[in-house]
Amino acid sequence: MDPTLSPGEAVVAYLRARAPGLPAAPFDPRAVTARARRALRRRNRLRNSAVSVAGAGLAYLMLALAGPLPVPGVGPVSLPGSNTLRAVIADFVPGAPPGPRRWPSDVDRLEKEVLPVIEELRVFYYVPESDTCRILEYSRGQFGDPGCSDLMALDPEARADFDRVTAAVKRSGVAVERIFRNGGICVQVPDSSWQYNYQYVYKPGPDMPPETRWPGEQWTHIRGDWWFHRAHDD
């Protein structure tokens, strides 16, 4: 074997010597190595780009679902498209509050079935937690089941009025956690959040959102005197 040849050239010469007629082809090991290194760098760039895009997408998704975030000197800031994304997610995630697509139909049913009873009885606070822990505070007084409140026990009339509110809520088909008054008639809906409460609010008056008191608090107008309110969990 020719000692002046490089290892790669020597292998090629050896194979040609034992394969007459093999077409000659230039072989440059340095060029092959350089091409391999360039291909490896391209793959690394593509992999890093994919990781960066995926990371940015995940960060956007998490921030969008978190909702408006307080920014010092600016106030709550929402990412573009975050409301639409949360509305889509709300329709599929168990325990999530109702999304904007459900709001109009929910308030239509609340206005038809629940609001008239609440206003007629002048209900201030209603909690349908269970059959053994009912609370009704209204024009006749403050009533509750013994063992879960220190209120007066429900008398027959209070029990009948409680049942009227409960029947109205069931007819509406809206899941209700409690009803109370706080500048309007608030219908709180169940959710699995530890940070916020969500409620439909019937608030007659100017078509302007009430003033917010906490970072992350949000009022969204639905129609007429109805709003959707996100408040901090009490």
Rank of each mutant, 00 (worst) to 15 (best):
D2L: 12
P3W: 04
P7E: 13
G8A: 15
E9A: 15
E9P: 00
Y14Q: 07
L15A: 14
A17L: 12
G21P: 11
A24T: 13
A25N: 11
D28S: 14
P29L: 15
T33A: 15
T33E: 15
R35G: 12
R45F: 11
L46C: 08
R47Y: 10
V53G: 06
V53E: 03
G57T: 04
L58N: 00
A59C: 05
A59V: 08
L63R: 06
L63H: 04
L65E: 05
G67I: 00
L69T: 11
P70Y: 15
V71N: 05
G73L: 02
V77Y: 00
G81Y: 00
T84Q: 09
T84F: 04
D91H: 11
G95A: 02
P100C: 00
V107L: 02
P116I: 07
E119P: 00
E120W: 03
L121H: 01
R122H: 12
V123K: 10
F124W: 12
V127R: 09
P128S: 02
I135F: 02
G144I: 04
D145Q: 05
D145F: 06
D145S: 13
M152A: 13
D155G: 06
P156Q: 04
E157I: 12
D163W: 04
T166K: 14
R171T: 00
S172R: 04
G173K: 02
E177Y: 01
V189S: 08
D191K: 00
W194Q: 08
Q199R: 10
Y200K: 05
P204I: 03
P209M: 10
P209T: 04
W214K: 15
E217N: 12
Q218P: 15
T220F: 02
R223P: 03
R223I: 03
G224M: 10
W226Q: 11
D234S: 12
D234C: 14
